[in-house]
Measured scan of single mutants.
Amino acid sequence: LVRYRTISKIPQITLNFVDLKGDPFLASPTSDREIIAPKIKERTHNVTEKVTQVLSLGADVLPEYKLQAPRIHRWTILHYSPFKAVWDWLILLLVIYTAVFTPYSAAFLLKETEEGPPATECGYACQPLAVVDLIVDIMFIVDILINFRTTYVNANEEVVSHPGRIAVHYFKGWFLIDMVAAIPFDLLIFGSGSEELIGLLKTARLLRLVRVARKLDRYSEYGAAVLFLLMCTFALIAHWLACIWYAIGNMEQPHMDSRIGWLHNLGDQIGKPYNSSGLGGPSIKDKYVTALYFTFSSLTSVGFGNVSPNTNSEKIFSICVMLIGSLMYASIFGNVSAIIQRLYSGTARYHTQMLRVREFIRFHQIPNPLRQRLEEYFQHAWSYTNGIDMNAVLKGFPECLQADICLHLNRSLLQHCKPFRGATKGCLRALAMKFKTTHAPPGDTLVHAGDLLTALYFISRGSIEILRGDVVVAILGKNDIFGEPLNLYARPGKSNGDVRALTYCDLHKIHR
């Protein structure tokens, strides 16, 4: 019993810090008490220290592992850092350059016999395009090294910054494609005289377009951006097909006994025919423009016929181009109408809503002055909100995010209106959640004399007048207030005048 009563005193000691020596009952000389009392004092002292730490809000209350900052290894790049964003855009520009100039170089340097010394005699450094290609190869190699040090988000939505895990993730992902696209074939085969082989191998750079397509997928929600990307894709495919079309004609031209190829026909049409040795002929500019003209006309199913396939190889390629053109029509131009419709969806919704308003007016036989006010209010409210119901949009977000959005939407009023000066951010967040926005066209009466005042109004834009009878008592403008002081009276009061809008007004109100 003594032991039980001794232990039962522990909660009292913990909360009230009572010393055991003052209790005459606990001072009985028993061996059990002498053993338990020192333990009680020690526990009391420890609990006292913990309570003191909690009340003082000291940093040592938290466990040590929670006080440590997340460790980022040296030379690790955050995937959302500004440097990584700028670097990704730079790589994107280099990939676009590669997609345009690599097929052009591979096709127009394929057994090209233009006048001038061969590239091997001039030297590697004197070729501007080769120098640019070398810079692109170096940048792609540097990009691989950067990807080995860039964080990523795993399946659990955690940012991984450990170098080993980053390397394994990159090896399992895009490393092989990036490595093949970054191989400097110019340096590996330079001086061997195989410019045709170098041009063909350099087309491996186009593998990076797969990554670019995935990154550009984030802009699919913007109709104008999608339309622009589709047109660029169409032009890029036409450019690639033009390079292939020229390569076919250029390879067949020296081996044909009869002059029936499209390059021969082009030379005869523009007065620059090929001679018996295969030299001469149109310039590279004429060849490229004509090839691009043929691919565009074939892809769009126009086909004027002034550039036509004559050999079997050219006919087979033309059939493939027609098939590609039909697929592009289905996948690209078939979506253009939907994209344009999405661009004008706001206008369509406006006309639909206006039609419903006019049908309501016609069905209920609203008189002319009231009908005009109804239409003007709808037009003004639509121009202010673009038909978007803010309350319906915010309803799907958590309250903390709703408060931040409301604070942002009402920031101008909260910053410049005098009653809100000096208020804490928590108070402003709470008030912003209570605001209701209303609009009024010129001549609209917001409050009639004798109406119950259940709200306090803040003028965000425009001006109003307060009338008693036919006498203008006051004219209020931006950041002015009218209405009933909230919670100042037990019952809502009545208006002693009319409140009429002089201009288009936007008002925020808080109800009782």
Rank of each mutant, 00 (worst) to 15 (best):
213 A>D: 04
293 Y>S: 01
226 V>K: 10
108 F>T: 01
239 H>E: 01
223 G>P: 07
443 G>C: 01
433 M>A: 04
344 Y>W: 05
168 V>L: 14
207 L>Q: 01
330 A>T: 01
160 V>H: 01
204 A>D: 01
412 S>V: 09
189 I>Y: 11
132 V>A: 05
325 G>L: 01
83 F>N: 05
130 A>T: 05
130 A>G: 03
268 D>G: 02
121 E>F: 07
123 G>Q: 01
199 G>H: 12
302 V>Q: 03
234 F>Y: 05
364 H>C: 04
154 N>V: 11
391 N>C: 03
188 L>W: 06
240 W>L: 01
177 I>P: 08
428 L>M: 06
252 E>P: 01
166 I>H: 01
174 W>R: 04
283 S>L: 01
325 G>F: 01
261 G>Q: 02
388 I>N: 06
409 L>W: 03
196 E>D: 14
349 R>W: 09
261 G>V: 01
236 L>H: 01
355 L>N: 15
395 K>T: 14
142 V>E: 01
263 L>M: 01
88 D>S: 01
82 P>V: 15
341 Q>S: 10
205 R>V: 03
200 L>P: 01
305 G>W: 01
267 G>P: 01
114 E>P: 15
416 H>D: 13
428 L>K: 15
285 K>P: 01
281 G>F: 01
216 L>V: 14
279 L>I: 07
352 T>L: 11
340 I>H: 01
356 R>C: 13
238 A>D: 01
216 L>M: 09
102 T>H: 14
168 V>N: 09
332 I>V: 10
264 H>E: 03
341 Q>A: 14
150 T>R: 01
377 Y>H: 07
262 W>R: 03
224 A>F: 14
157 E>L: 14
126 C>M: 01
90 L>A: 09
67 L>T: 13
434 K>M: 04
67 L>K: 03
342 R>W: 09
385 T>Q: 15
278 G>H: 03
390 M>I: 05
365 Q>R: 11
79 H>A: 01
403 A>L: 01
363 F>M: 15
145 L>A: 08
240 W>P: 01
84 K>T: 01
267 G>L: 03
359 E>L: 02
413 L>V: 10
282 P>S: 03
120 T>R: 15
108 F>D: 01
140 F>P: 01
310 N>P: 01
196 E>C: 10
345 S>E: 10
384 Y>G: 05
78 L>H: 04
242 A>P: 01
337 S>V: 05
218 R>N: 04
351 H>E: 03
395 K>C: 08
388 I>M: 08
124 Y>P: 04
337 S>D: 01
262 W>N: 01
68 Q>W: 04
300 T>F: 04
415 Q>D: 10
194 S>M: 13
392 A>Q: 13
